Computed example of a mutant assay.
Amino acid sequence: MSAHDIFVTAARKCLSAGRKSLSASQSLDLAAQVLALDLGLKPALLYDSNGASAGQVQQYLSSLQSSQLLSKSLFTLDLNGNTLIVNPAAARLNVEQLIIHYGNVAVIDICHSLEKPTIADPMRTELKSMTQGLLLLLREMEHLREKAKEPHYTVGDESEEWNLCTVFGLLLGYPVTYWFDQTKSFENCLSMTPLSVTTASATWQADTFDHRCCLYSFSVPTVLFEDVQSKLENWSLCLHERFQQQNILKDLTFCQSTVTLPSVCL
């Protein structure tokens, strides 16, 4: 059986939710994303293709690892009912960019009370506490991985006060992430705000065909684009350097567009 067939079969076998299973195209998209994680090109992937549980996602990974198509470096993380596939080492490095190497990741305050988005201080109390907690979590996951423990982790009560929008941005490896004071409101000030959307795509050459997929997609308010441009350039340069160190994915391309939406759900 070809690698392409193994990936598709594993997705359809392990990730069915009720009568809903992944299509061949969705299975290949997931395969390319997971390969990018395994290669360290992405630190994490938020699994939202269907209603499959974290346990099912772990079964999917274990199946591919048994077929020697993936290494054993990936973890399944259940975070407040959200399932992520995580490369703990790569994710830890990205979070450390915010905590230790101050300034390499931008945090954008989009609180509803603001007239326009602003750059937030990542060392403000709420953000510092959350990112330190996230860093401890990732270090614990790395420790469990080294001890060959069960590669599945469920976050408990310690994450209840975390802003998941910010956490997801950090885990997914974005050079910018959004934050808002969720104790006051879950709404934001991005309505009708022009957003510059950056995407990074690559091609996975599976057997005799090529499959194009989007590895990253994130937005930045255009009013702040110049303020974070150096971080975006550094992020794209680092991604390009990591990309050159592997030969499974090819044709890395970056694209930017501008959108303005009546409402933005995060």
Rank of each mutant, 00 (worst) to 15 (best):
P43N: 04
E241C: 06
A3K: 14
L215A: 05
I110F: 04
E142M: 08
S191V: 10
A17I: 05
E146L: 12
G173D: 00
R19Y: 15
P221M: 08
G51H: 13
I6A: 10
L190R: 00
E226N: 14
L93T: 15
T260V: 12
W235P: 01
V228N: 07
S201L: 00
S196F: 12
I99W: 13
S217F: 00
L84R: 00
Q59P: 00
N104Q: 13
I85C: 06
D157M: 12
F75D: 09
D29E: 14
V105N: 05
E150K: 03
R124A: 12
S236A: 10
A202I: 03
T118Q: 15
S27H: 09
N247K: 11
V228G: 01
L28A: 01
G81Y: 06
L37M: 09
H112P: 04
L134K: 02
L77Y: 06
Q229I: 07
V155M: 03
T76C: 15
Q182P: 00
S185Y: 01
N94L: 12
L98I: 13
L15Q: 08
H152N: 10
Y153S: 07
E140N: 00
L69T: 07
F168V: 05
L170A: 02
S67K: 15
C165T: 02
L237I: 09
T199H: 06
E140I: 06
L215N: 01
S63M: 12
E146K: 14
F168D: 07
T258C: 07
Y102V: 14
T198Q: 10
L195K: 02
Q56H: 04
L224C: 11
Y216D: 01
G169E: 02
I6E: 08
